[in-house]
Amino acid sequence: MADKPYSLQHSENPTARRQALRDIAARRDAVLMPGAGNALTARIIEDLGFEAVYLTGAGLTNMTLGLPDLALLTPADLADATARISDTCSLPLLVDMDTGFGNALNAYHNTRRLERAGAAGLQIEDQVFPKKCGHFGGKAVVPVAEILGKLKACLDARQDETMMICARTDARAVEGFDAAMERAQMMIETGADLIFFEAPESLEEIQAIAKLPAPGVLNLVVGGRTPMPAHAELKAAGFSFVLYANAALQASVHAMQEVLGSLHATGSLDAVADKLASFSERQRLVGKPELDSLAARYEGS
Rank of each mutant, 00 (worst) to 15 (best):
K4I: 03
L8S: 15
Q9P: 01
H10R: 15
S11M: 12
S11A: 14
N13W: 09
P14H: 12
R17F: 02
R17T: 01
Q19R: 15
D23S: 14
A25E: 07
R27W: 00
R28I: 01
A30L: 04
A30G: 09
A30Q: 09
V31Q: 13
L32T: 15
L32R: 14
P34G: 08
L40Q: 13
R43I: 09
I44R: 13
I45Y: 11
I45C: 07
L48R: 15
L48S: 12
E51N: 13
E51M: 05
Y54L: 03
G59Y: 00
L60H: 11
L60N: 06
N62T: 06
M63D: 07
P68M: 00
L70M: 03
A71V: 00
L73P: 07
P75G: 08
P75M: 02
A76K: 10
A83W: 00
I85V: 13
S90D: 15
L91D: 10
L93C: 07
L93W: 04
L94M: 14
L94H: 07
D98L: 00
G100V: 05
G102S: 06
A104R: 12
N106L: 03
A107V: 09
R113W: 04
R116C: 00
A117G: 09
G118P: 03
G121R: 08
E125L: 03
Q127K: 11
V128A: 01
F129M: 06
F129S: 12
K132W: 01
C133A: 06
F136L: 04
G138N: 03
K139N: 02
V142W: 05
V142G: 05
P143L: 03
P143I: 02
V144T: 14
V144S: 07
E146D: 15
E146L: 01
G149A: 15
K152S: 14
C154A: 13
A157F: 03
Q159G: 09
T162I: 00
M164K: 14
I165W: 09
R168E: 02
R168M: 04
T169P: 12
D170M: 04
A171E: 02
F177H: 10
A179R: 13
A179Q: 14
A180M: 12
M181Y: 07
M181F: 10
M181W: 06
M181S: 10
A184N: 13
M187G: 14
D193A: 11
I195S: 10
F197I: 15
E201Y: 03
E201S: 10
E204L: 05
E205D: 12
Q207F: 00
A210M: 07
A214P: 09
G216I: 06
V217G: 05
V221G: 01
G223V: 12
G224M: 03
G224C: 02
P229E: 03
P229D: 01
A230H: 13
F241R: 10
V242Q: 05
Y244K: 11
A248T: 15
A248E: 05
V253L: 06
A255M: 06
Q257L: 02
E258R: 13
E258Y: 00
V259I: 14
L260C: 09
G261C: 02
L263Y: 02
L263N: 04
D270N: 12
A271Q: 14
V272I: 13
V272Y: 02
S278F: 01
S280W: 02
L285R: 15
G287R: 15
K288F: 11
D292S: 11
A295E: 15
G300D: 11
